[in-house]
């Protein structure tokens, strides 16, 4: 992650000042709020970062599978900008971390290559006053829900950061001859398989690199999302997301979980 100078708009600073004087805002549900309190944290504010980004055009070869590096870069940079701005807001609030982070993309009617990237989450601060920031001195970020955050805290692990890796990949169209010769047969398409493997692999590796940079011992809750956005069906973004964690203490002795069957429909 690159270091950014503080570029928060003035109005944002003013609003955050209000939050420092005791009011908190949070999109956590009541259950999540109580569980975050239970884990020893207090919400300090709803923090957000957004970036409206124009992604460049990259020519794709019809019959060749390849990574579209320019689009990969765009998708990564735009999210990184949104994430960094969210982290800055959290840092401004003196928060130790951000939980329940959601990353969204909105498309606008004007400019089909422009998209809005948003990161939203609830900044939290440890109630015991001991800093829980990560190795880089920044507030940790995590897409864990309040429930998962509490459960994680019971295991002696602490989140270090939301890590992501992305790869935009163009999967080759098959030549007409190939398509005809395989019509009516069940065959594996090795090129497809290969391309999908490689793209996922690239996204996962990039995510793991981020985690290593944070000095984390592992990643939990990894999700692999595949989206075509607005590029047509043969160009796919593979996005790997997860929360990097590191062991910080002994696990709280877990009581054996009760098994239940819920009677509500």
């Amino acid at each position: 992650m690159s270091d950014h100078v503080n570029d928060l708009p003035e109005a944002t600073e003013r609003r955050l000042e209000e939050l420092e004087h005791g009011l908190f805002t949070s999109d956590l549900s009541v259950n999540e709020f109580l569980l975050v309190k239970e884990a020893g944290f207090h919400p300090v504010g709803l923090v957000m970062g957004s970036s409206i980004y124009h992604t460049g055009i990259q020519t794709r070869k019809w019959s060749q599978s390849q990574e579209l590096t320019k689009l990969t870069e765009a998708m990564y940079n735009a999210r990184e900008l949104a994430m960094n701005r969210m982290e800055e807001e959290a840092a401004e609030l003196g928060a130790d971390g951000v939980v329940g982070v959601r990353l969204d993309v909105n498309y606008y009617e004007w400019g089909k290559d422009a998209a809005e990237f948003i990161a939203v989450g609830t900044a939290v601060k440890a109630e015991d006053g001991v800093s829980r920031r990560n190795k880089l001195g920044k507030p940790f970020t995590s897409d864990l829900s309040g429930q998962d955050f509490w459960t994680l805290s019971q295991t002696g692990y602490a989140p270090q950061g939301l890590v992501m890796g992305t790869c935009v990949y163009h999967i080759a169209h098959r030549g007409l001859g190939q398509a005809l010769s395989t019509t009516g047969q069940n065959v594996e398409l090795p090129n497809f398989t290969q391309a999908l493997y490689e793209a996922r692999e690239l996204a996962m590796t990039r995510m793991q690199d981020e985690s290593t940079r944070l000095g984390a011992s592992g990643i939990v809750g990894v999700r692999l999302e595949e989206k075509s956005h607005q590029w047509g069906s043969h160009t796919i973004e593979f996005l790997a997301l997860g929360t990097a964690v590191t062991r910080t203490g002994d696990p709280v002795t877990l009581t054996k979980p009760t098994t239940i069957i819920s009677l509500d429909n």
Binding site: L34, L35, Q147, W150, T151, P257, T258, I260
Partner: peptide, 13 residues
């Protein structure tokens, strides 16, 4: 009205 015992909070694993 038979007051319900305060429900125990649980977290689903």
């Amino acid at each position: 009205f038979q007051a319900l015992r305060t429900p125990d909070p649980t977290v689903r694993l």
